[in-house]
Design a protein around this nucleic acid. Structure first.
Lengths: 219, 219
DNA sequence: ACCCGCATGTTAGCGCTCTTAACATGAGCT
DNA sequence: AGCTCATGTTAAGAGCGCTAACATGCGGGT
């Protein structure tokens, strides 16, 4: 019976009124603290001040809550990327670098979301909304790739999808391996953002995009 | 008492004789089947034909077994990469492409190992052997980077560490996002190996390494 | 040849989680 | 006012991680 009055904040009646939202917030907090595996359905319920069975009125099981968190993460991610890209203004190059920084900033500032999205083992097929949100986020990378490719002469244009996948892969690789401050991984001579920026400059140079005459950056 | 004779293979006495090895093999199988989270200490014990408490004579806890699996994974990984690199013979370029294919082949052929190494949330600090094995594996990437850089004129050489990190990040990014056959991720117009190969060619081109006159590959 | 120590395995049990079934409450529609 | 159904609670079963106390028998020392 201890869970009943553990959080004296706002006393409530038999019905919570906003349980689903609060469960998601609790899950996000727990994932952020203890990783996607440390998160527990029961503990989220405790945090929301309800019994361990209450969450089942809102989510079929633990995985569905995780998928919901991941979907919200992709929505926030999409918003962030789309804001950074800003339709390629003022020019595709600078917008593209904003996009890269936004990618890593999201992974860094929202580790709980990023965990749920990429490290919790949630399949994109878990729900249609999840898939859709992920697709919308990826669409930003693809748009950026297309805008940059448009700068090339027709006969030197790589497939936009391939280029977008490269961008995504390097961004995710850097975020996953070196993105978190002290995730037990390797210490770096440079920040993740700088690493990505340098990598992308070299990659674009390889495509023939960017400061045509400049040598690869000596970072 | 059902666990006692579940596996009638080789009857054994009170002592198992080779439990530690068999637990690792069982863990590897379970991780391969159900992901790093589906793996259970108790089930590994069941598979080995011992009581649920027996594993604690060989591993402090579940995480230590996971760390052991990860360390063995890095050892196998290192062996694979080192064989592929073969000290840069016959020339750094072709050896480098072998290395890339070996990276993805390992992620593809040994998903259980790769999961334990990168997706199970095992910190590299979990044991000194783990850290050492991971370092040895990474050293191969760094060696390859150095050999390729040596082809450049002195004043155009990027830092070898940075280049190795880029290679690792793109390889891991591709493996994590698209490496597994049907991991619930996105269907691709090309194989992961082709994607990595193309990405690396573009990247090297950006550094000024590779077929100097050829345009980016039209894959 | 004996015996004893210690590594290795077993039994029992605590506390936790996930999940379901049966029951309780009260908000909102008619 | 009364009913209904979404939303909450209680109770309970199964499984897991982990520990403490006990059992076995391999292998070295006498």
């Amino acid at each position: 019976m201890s869970w009943k009055r553990d959080r004296p904040e706002t006393p409530r009646g038999y019905h919570h009124g906003n349980l689903k939202e609060e469960l998601v917030r609790a899950a996000l907090g727990l994932i952020g603290e203890k990783g996607p595996n440390g998160f527990t359905f029961a503990e989220a319920a405790r945090m929301a001040g309800v019994s361990p069975a209450a969450p089942y009125r809102h989510f079929r099981d633990r995985d569905e809550l995780l998928a919901d968190v991941a979907a919200r993460g992709f929505q926030a991610f999409e918003a962030s990327l789309s804001r950074a890209w800003d339709q390629g203004r003022p020019d595709p190059e600078s917008a593209f670098h904003r996009l890269g920084r936004a990618y890593l900033a999201f992974a860094h500032d929202e580790p709980a979301y990023y965990s749920a999205m990429f490290e919790a083992g949630v399949s994109l097929d878990a729900s249609p909304e999840l898939r859709a949100a992920a697709d919308r986020a990826f669409a930003n990378l693809r748009q950026a790739a297309e805008a940059l490719i448009a700068r090339l002469p027709q006969n030197k244009r790589p497939p936009a999808l391939m280029m977008a996948l490269h961008i995504w892969a390097m961004s995710h690789g850097i975020a996953a391996l070196f993105g978190r401050a002290d995730g037990g991984r390797r210490p770096l001579p440079m920040s993740a953002a700088e690493l990505l920026e340098a990598g992308m400059l070299i990659y674009l140079q390889g495509l023939g995009i960017g400061p045509e005459t400049a040598p690869p950056p000596a970072v």
